[in-house]
Design a protein around this nucleic acid. Structure first.
Lengths: 186, 186
DNA sequence: TCATTTTTTTATCATTTGTAAAAGGCTCCC
DNA sequence: GGGAGCCTTTTACAAATGATAAAAAAATGA
């Protein structure tokens, strides 16, 4: 996935604004296992995934909980750092070798002040993330673990092939043993 | 709560832009029990709560699930209508007589195209809602029902006084019986 | 390829949570 | 003051999920 595709997917931009935004992107590569963002740290960058898959996780007491997966086209970002300037709660780990586009939050935020198209692009970005987050919340509140697993297979069959079941169980909010039981039933 | 307070709380606006936005607000009153937004309908308005408390709920099979409460200062909005132009999943019911400020999405969206300050205000609005939603999701994924109840008392003691426990149990993702058990323990 | 490590499944038991039904409280209105 | 209706709590039982341990399967690396 290239920069144009990623930016356009969020919201169409006039050519001039898009070039402006693209000029702030730099390509970076990191290997599988690399920790891209750190919990309890104010992060200053946003990354867009050109290739690869990542997970966000945090600790509750002593056990690690995976609560997000990102793959091609998605933005890797500590929302708390981005929106509130506070340390985030999540580590982001690369589950494959990744090609990423890096954007400094400070660059983006100055563009917001001077280019109305980019300000609206940023608005669309937040709105899309909001809808995604709301859908995850509703899925969690309304569906049983079994239904959530079925929905995941439906909407994101890739994930099952690329991510180990322990992480998926954690994402679904159940133990790996429970996920195994669910898989055995179906 | 007045319009200035509500708008400023989301993000500061230059006086001129603020007056522009305020000129699009109209005050409306509805009684307790009124259904402000309807599920499966594309909604065209945003409401800000001056006074009162409301809940969002939806149906899963035959049982109703409350998944959001809004009170003074908060925006009542079908995010799916607002962001994607699609029918929302939620009914919004007023739990008290309410004083609301109504804003047409169409008015807001044209201001986004012409006033960069309002575009950034709209961006901040989405970002703040995003953080709130993310926090609810994380609370749900990381905390037990008992911890979520304790957190609710801590951060929102008002709610307990203004909303009946059946709705709160549903919001916490447990049955009213379970909530009773939790309350008995503490 | 074989040995080692990691991941997934299976089995058992303990705990939590849900369902259904009953009882107790509270409020409102006549 | 006393019902009627709604809200909340309690109880008993059933179902689902978690914890732990161990076996089986798959992946990794020398």
């Amino acid at each position: 996935m290239n920069a144009d595709q990623i930016l356009d997917e969020i919201a169409k931009l006039p050519e001039e604004s898009k070039e402006l935004l693209k000029s702030k992107l730099t390509e970076v590569h990191f290997p599988k296992g690399f920790i891209l963002l750190r919990a309890n740290k104010v992060e200053s960058g946003i990354y867009f995934i050109r290739k690869g898959i990542v997970r966000a996780y945090a600790y509750q007491n002593d056990n690690e909980i995976t609560f997000w997966f990102g793959s091609e086209g998605q933005a890797v970002i500590s929302m708390r750092s981005y929106v509130e300037g506070l340390p985030g709660y999540e580590d982001i780990e690369l589950l494959e070798d990744c090609e990423l586009l890096k954007l400094k939050m400070s660059d983006l935020k100055s563009l917001f002040q001077t280019d109305i198209h980019i300000a609206n692009w940023g608005r669309r970005f937040a709105e899309r993330e909001l809808i995604r987050t709301e859908e995850r919340l509703i899925s969690r509140q309304f569906r049983t673990a079994q239904e959530r697993y079925a929905a995941l297979i439906e909407t994101n069959p890739d994930l099952l092939k690329r991510v180990q079941l322990g992480y998926i169980a954690s994402y679904l909010g159940i133990t790996q043993v429970s996920l195994s039981r669910i898989r055995a039933k179906v």
